[in-house]
Design a protein around this nucleic acid. Sequence first.
DNA 1: ATCCAGGCCCGAT
DNA 2: ATCGGGCATGGA
Length: 296
Amino acid sequence: MNYKLNNGNICLNMDGDFIISQTLECGQCFNFNKIGEENYIVTAFGRALHIYSTDGSIVFEDTTQEEFEKIWVDYFDLNRDYGKIKDLLSAKDETLKKALEYAPGIRIINQDFFQCLISFIISQNNRIPMIKKVVSNLSKKYGEYIKTVEGEDYFSFPTPEKLYGISGNELMECKTGFRGKYIADAVTKYVDGTLNHKNFNNLTTKEVQALLMGIHGVGPKVADCVMLFSLKRSDAFPADVWVKRIMSYFYFDQKDTPIKDIHSFAYEKFGEYSGFAQQYLFNYARQFKIGTGKDA
DNA sequence: ATCCAGGCCCGAT
DNA sequence: ATCGGGCATGGA
């Protein structure tokens, strides 16, 4: 990764391994607002980052070198060599190769654990635009005002302490639907220490998944997303309807296959990079509606 | 209008 | 252990 300071902005050159739109809009995070082509505001860790690309480089505006190195390098996984991962995965499989060529600029974001947990609780049986809306509603109601960009106000995602004690019913005012009580349980367990992700380091991915599933409303899929997108568990393989479809379509002779079989197949084929493979496959499946009967 | 969405809970088998 | 209905909400 090489970057330079330019008029107070950070300019980054990633040789095509980082395309902002692909990274933000591939379904892994919900805390961004598009204000133009390859031009976004991303809220995370209490900041609202203006990020855009121009002349082949990526510009981080309104940030400092300190903030960039402390927050955004890890957030956008900038120290990881994606060229290497893509080569490795492309060599394994033709389907994956196509998925990688379709969206070569996806990087796996390292999100804040709490925000990621709540976001993916909201994601269940929901659609991405609606998930974004609910995350935004919660931020506006319970988060802190950060700043206004082009007439739009940006708020931080609420802290666990701020949400503590708020009932599921009250949370439903933010359009969480039936997931309000699930959020309330996650908040309670986070704040009272029943669930402490800082104690997860020496546990296997399977063990962490089981702990996360101790939350009422967190099942295997949401737990996998939280592990992949906020706990650096790249072997987690979230299998939702799209992943189930594309895996069934390409690897199981188009036959509807149980999640359990898909999981064991994925881990055997993709190993510790299962999570990366999953994200490229998910994106590919969703774009081309693979396995829905409407696929091209 | 009916169906469904980056699922999970719960009760019935 | 596995299966199906129900669930808030809003867009197609």
